[in-house]
Write a protein that binds this DNA or RNA. Structure first.
Length: 557
RNA sequence: GCUCCCGUAGUUCAACGGAUAGAAUAGUAGAUUGCGGAUCUACCGAUCCAAGUUCGAUUCUUGGCGGGAGCACCA
């Protein structure tokens, strides 16, 4: 029976027989973009033609001649400049359809079996707005967490929130002057007033760390209020399925800077050979590692984010024995994170090697950066509301029972898909028109394909047409793409790149819609059971695919 | 100035060194009284510049040009 790696082995063996030594691992074997070129393809003959002193095409022919019959492979062809193309047997593709229909967790792999992975994401700051940047981190982190779960890992979700620091002092200062204003506004106002009231605000900052009695009640209130708001947002973002019982929270662990700060300070203080005094502050000199110097303790003796991050790493490791801890942040923090990691290698070496940083691009306007300091941010709730309003108009005509819920599901799909479809590391230009689009290359497009497939399966049930795969039926584009689903999921999980999955799903949904438009499924013929099976398999594929993106899959829309 | 990221249709994004560079959107023209038109079909339209490596470069290397981010007490 063929597998991906056995095909590689066979090719390697064949080449070795021809006097060319190649490592099976290094044999290229890809899914051709164009299905007419087969289900798998290798360009190996072009690579070794020179060494073999024959033309690429001739070498490919020789390899094919020695491959013999491979179970599960219908034919092997040489095409183009010398590609070796493998076409899977109909029975294999039929087998994938059956799996998709019967296995709940269709698409699952064993890539990370037995691994314990902590994923830290979202990381909003109490006292400040939850804006699109946090939404990005949440969407990406949640999808990565699910991809890892589907690859066999045990995953814990972590959220790290900055409940102490200058931003809090600014918000408190403004709130004391104007008690009526909301916290998000208070922060911005405090920031504007900072130059004029530096001493006062710095004083408040210090008092917060000391849990000073005068401001503590206001601090507690603000902290609780904003954290409670965040919980409501997590719910809206589709994390409610993680709440099984009433008192469970959305993330497995919530870490706070107020807790990590003292730990970090202790770590810095106990390593005077690593952290040096400079201009009244305690810094880490990163120049030896090709990095730059960063402050860990300010001249006012307060910890910076860097120090807290050290404390966080220690706290994480004590909280759960993970193999890997992934932190997802915006790209603007990459450099700072590298300095922290360099310092951590000296202070907490065994933890440092398990820490991994993934950065995503920034959400920005065409005109420039969004900044909560300047106040030109799009809040997560504001954007969701706008999308909700657009979706609601269309939902009125829908056959779904709960139009409000549907509009919300669609709004969520639109915004998450737009974030996830892009390779991480690149900035996302926030284009309102595009963000509000519910058509084409979009989340709702995937949802719609799923809802359609679901409707047909329901109808088949009503008409008592039992789904049955016919292994003799000539495979079509859809079933061949369907067979690739588990590999697409594994690929995305290995690369920690959800966009690799959206690429696949868009192609798959498009193939389904095309097929649907040209083919009557319930046509009363003897071919109907096979087509129903295919539709059912497509339905599960889309459902699981959407789940992996953290996007709801409504059955009617 | 130094470091990192990025330059692909008008616009927003794809393309593990591979076959005719794919989508979406915008624009134009269409879809049979057929299970859902949030769909489908057709047309139009792109790799920043210059060298190099390679059988083959959007992809790798070097140098330009252009954009973004970071570079000492913010996170």
């Amino acid at each position: 029976m063929y597998t991906r790696s056995s095909l590689k082995d066979l090719i390697a063996k064949s080449l070795n027989g021809l006097g060319i030594s190649v490592d099976a691992e290094k044999i290229p074997l890809e899914h051709p973009a164009d299905l007419k070129n087969g289900d798998y393809s290798s360009g190996i003959a072009m690579q070794y033609a020179k060494e073999a002193k024959v033309a690429p095409h001739a070498l490919a022919e020789k390899v094919v001649a020695t491959l013999g019959v491979i179970e599960g492979v219908a034919k092997v062809e040489v095409a183009g400049a010398g590609f070796i193309n493998f076409y899977l047997a109909p029975s294999i593709l039929a087998g994938a359809v059956d799996k998709a229909r019967t296995e709940d967790r269709w698409g699952r792999s064993a890539l990370n079996e037995g691994k314990k992975i902590m994923v830290e994401y979202t990381d909003p700051n109490p006292f400040k707005e939850f804006h699109i940047g946090h939404l990005m981190s949440n969407a990406i982190g949640e999808s990565i967490a699910r991809l890892l779960e589907f690859s066999g890992a045990e995953v814990k979700r972590a959220n790290y929130q900055g409940d102490v620091g200058p931003h809090v002092a600014k918000a408190i200062f403004a709130k004391m002057r104007s008690p009526g204003i909301p916290w998000g506004v208070a922060y911005k106002m405090g920031n504007d007033l900072y130059d004029a009231f530096k001493t006062e605000i710095d004083d408040i900052n210090k008092k917060i760390y000391e849990r000073n009695r005068e401001i503590f009640p206001l601090y507690e209130a603000g902290r609780n209020e904003t954290l409670a708001e965040f919980e409501l947002i997590y719910k809206k973002l589709g994390m409610e399925e993680r709440k099984q019982s009433g008192d469970e929270r959305f993330f497995d662990y919530y870490f706070y800077e107020s807790i990590t700060a003292p730990r970090g300070i202790a770590l810095v203080r106990s390593h005077p050979q690593v952290f040096k005094e400079s201009e009244g502050a305690i810094v880490y000199h990163g120049e030896d590692d090709g990095l730059h110097t960063r402050v860990f303790l300010t001249s006012k003796d307060l910890p910076t984010y860097e120090t807290k991050e050290l404390g966080l790493a220690e706290l994480k490791a004590e909280t759960w024995k993970f193999d890997t801890s992934i932190t997802i942040t915006a790209h603007e923090q990459s450099d700072y994170f590298e300095v922290v990691l360099a310092a951590m290698k000296k202070v907490l070496p065994e933890v440092a090697q398990k820490i991994r940083h993934i950065s995503h691009g920034m959400m920005r306007f065409a005109e420039g950066k969004m900044s909560s300091r300047v106040g030109n941010v799009v809040t997560a709730l504001g954007l969701l509301q706008e999308l909700f309003d657009v979706a609601k108009d269309r939902a009125k005509e829908s056959r779904a029972d709960d139009h409000e819920k549907l509009a919300h599901d669609i709004a969520l799909a639109a915004v998450k898909y737009q974030i996830l479809k892009q390779a991480s590391g690149k900035d996302i230009i926030f284009d309102r028109e595009r963000a509000l689009s519910l058509e084409g290359d979009s989340g709702p497009y995937l949802q719609y394909a799923h809802a359609r497939a679901h409707a047909v399966v329901e109808k088949a049930r009503e008409q008592n047409v039992a789904a049955k795969v016919d292994a003799e039926t000539e495979p079509i584009e859809l079933s061949r793409l369907l067979h690739r689903f588990p590999e697409a999921v594994e690929y995305a999980a290995r690369e920690l790149e959800p966009h690799l999955l959206t690429n696949y799903l868009l192609e798959f949904a498009s193939a389904f819609n095309r097929w649907y438009a040209n083919e009557q499924i319930l046509d009363g013929s003897t071919g109907a059971p096979h087509k129903v099976a295919l539709t059912d398999a497509a339905c599960r594929t889309l459902k699981n695919g959407l789940w992996l993106l953290g996007i709801p899959a409504p059955e009617k829309m």
